[in-house]
Design a protein around this nucleic acid. Structure first.
Lengths: 195, 195
DNA sequence: CAGTCATGTGTACGAGCGTACGCATACCGG
DNA sequence: CCGGTATGCGTACGCTCGTACACATGACTG
């Protein structure tokens, strides 16, 4: 009977601990923001002792980077999955509208982390590669349905709409969003077409 | 001979000091980000002693809020000024393109502060009023030329385009931006018009 | 089944932080 | 001309942070 006292089960052997710590770090970033993301808060969130963090990750900066990388990976995967059922350019409008209004698997929690990442990447070139590959992936998805320039525009539009949605006091209706998106998706005036 | 030593001119009587501190705070936020914006850094940037900050601003949080408020005010004013010469909806496309590509008085420095503000506002409702009134002002400017829904879309688009422009490794060309903006500005398919 | 060593844990330390506060200074109303 | 007081200044305090490190433990190899 080695596990007698009600104190602690002596949590030894925890192979996925590093993973759990990374997820906990994401939770803390989402809830408290990068400035308040400390070793101690993360440790509490992951329910591991403080020393465990410095054991698995040499520095806090490294841990943050891993967390952001994982989040970007997940977001990109969700993005791709969301567009897997889309067939025509018309469906794109609806799919993008879903995206903005949180009906595609990404909630405010996720977007908060995303914006924390953006801001961090503004000053850390290493993180720039993370945001870069994420943006490239999402653009590539859109390019299956629309031309590259339109893809860029729609991608940026989503970013802006979500940000405004989160910050705005008077929110945009789904109807409005659909109309805005439709305008962006509609192909450019093709030089020789029409007349 | 009271001002003998070459050490310091005994900088007494500095009526605009509070103002200067706020501007210094903005510089520090832009360069180092909110997490690293400390009393000591700001004091050094403003070339005032540390104690001067706590004298003029009871708390660091208050100083940050004042700085953000001033910045939002300036950005909104610049926005309005930039559109003062615009006459038709066609000019809007060019004006917005200028905005995105930094030819309208707002440089990466300014945008960095803006995004710091956005993120801070995400967690501080008090700052939400600052971002809210800023967004409202910019939208109202656009509404002089386009319908409200379009204004919302363009406003969000600018946000997203600038962010992508700052973070992206392969930048968007001015040409591309103009095309994207043009698509957003073009009025929606009017349901009952034309016939 | 015994020894090794990767893994897990608690504590301590130096640095930098926000803020408080006592003293110095010069402007200003009388 | 002189005191009162708003303003300017330097320093110190308590706290939290990231990180280091000595010790404990149990899974795995041979």
């Amino acid at each position: 009977m080695t596990a007698t006292p009600g104190a602690r089960p002596v949590r030894r052997y925890d192979p996925q601990r590093a993973d759990r710590i990374v997820d906990a770090a994401l939770d803390v970033i989402a809830e408290h923001g990068v400035p308040n993301t400390t070793h101690r808060l993360i440790a509490a969130a992951a329910d591991v002792p403080l020393g465990s963090l410095t054991y698995h990750f040499t520095t806090l900066e490294e841990l943050r980077a891993r967390a952001f990388t994982r989040h970007a990976e997940r977001m990109a995967a969700a993005y791709e999955a969301h567009f897997r059922t889309v067939r025509s350019a018309d469906d794109v409008v609806e799919a993008v509208t879903d995206l903005v209004h949180g009906d595609a698997g990404a909630d405010p929690h996720d977007w908060a982390i995303a914006y924390e990442l953006y801001l961090a990447a503004l000053r850390d070139p290493a993180l720039r590669t993370v945001t870069g590959s994420w943006m490239r992936r999402s653009r590539r998805v859109l390019e299956r349905f629309v031309d590259p320039t339109t893809a860029r525009g729609v991608d940026a539009l989503v970013e802006g709409l979500v940000m405004h949605k989160i910050l705005s006091t008077d929110p945009v209706s789904r109807e409005q969003t659909r109309e805005i998106v439709a305008r962006a998706v509609r192909p450019a005036t093709p030089p020789g077409t029409g007349v």
